[in-house]
Every structure is written in structure tokens, then in C-alpha cells.
């Protein structure tokens, strides 16, 4: 019985950890041709509530945005942020972390 309780508690903790990790948004952005210019996107996104980190893969035109658990970024919101930075948002996909 003691083992069963421990096992249940451990699995609950594991699943809570899994779902507490938030969401990663993969942004395909056109026009990203230099790292200095990409800073504008980082600056706009990092100021957005719930955004934990922003990383870039310039070769693939990817901006990877990690958002905290429970925070949702809409496509319209991301499109506006990217446009304000002077680039074009081509597509967005998301994955749970």
C-alpha cells in the first residue's frame, strides 16, 4: 500500500512537471538576413508577458519562442509583433514542452 501511494505521488509529480513546462512556438519569419536586425524581434517578444526565451535559427528563418505554462500567444499577436520588428511572419506551429 505504501509503495502504491509513493508510485501514484511520483507519477502525479512527473505529469505535473511535464505539463508545467509551457509551450514552444516555432515562428517561420521571412526577411531575417542578419543577427543585428533580428534583435528587434527578440526585444519585441521578450517584452511580451509570458515569454521566457527567444532563440533564432537564421538559416532556417526560425524564431523559437518559449512561453510559460498557461500563457497563450495568438497568431495575430505574433504576426503584429514580428511586423512591428520589420519582418514578415510566414507561419506558426506550437508544441508542448
Amino acid at each position: 500500500m505504501k509503495k502504491l501511494i509513493l508510485l501514484t505521488a511520483a507519477s502525479l509529480f512527473w505529469s505535473a512537471t511535464l505539463f508545467a513546462a509551457g509551450t514552444q512556438y516555432n515562428l517561420r519569419v521571412d526577411g531575417l538576413a542578419c543577427p543585428f536586425c533580428a534583435y528587434g524581434i527578440e526585444k519585441k517578444l521578450i517584452k511580451t508577458e509570458g515569454v521566457e526565451s527567444v532563440t533564432f535559427d537564421l538559416e532556417k528563418g526560425l524564431v523559437l519562442v518559449k512561453a510559460k505554462e498557461g500563457m497563450t500567444l495568438t497568431e495575430a499577436q505574433l504576426k503584429q509583433l514580428v511586423d512591428d520588428a520589420g519582418f514578415t511572419l510566414r507561419s506558426v506551429s506550437e508544441q508542448a514542452l
Binding site: G31, A33, L58, F87
Partner: peptide, 11 residues
Amino acid sequence: RFWRKDSLGRQ
């Protein structure tokens, strides 16, 4: 900037 054409890795 009145005109902009963006594509993958180009502006």
C-alpha cells in the same frame, strides 16, 4: 520604408 519584400533569409 515604403516598400519591403521578405523571403527566407532575404530582405
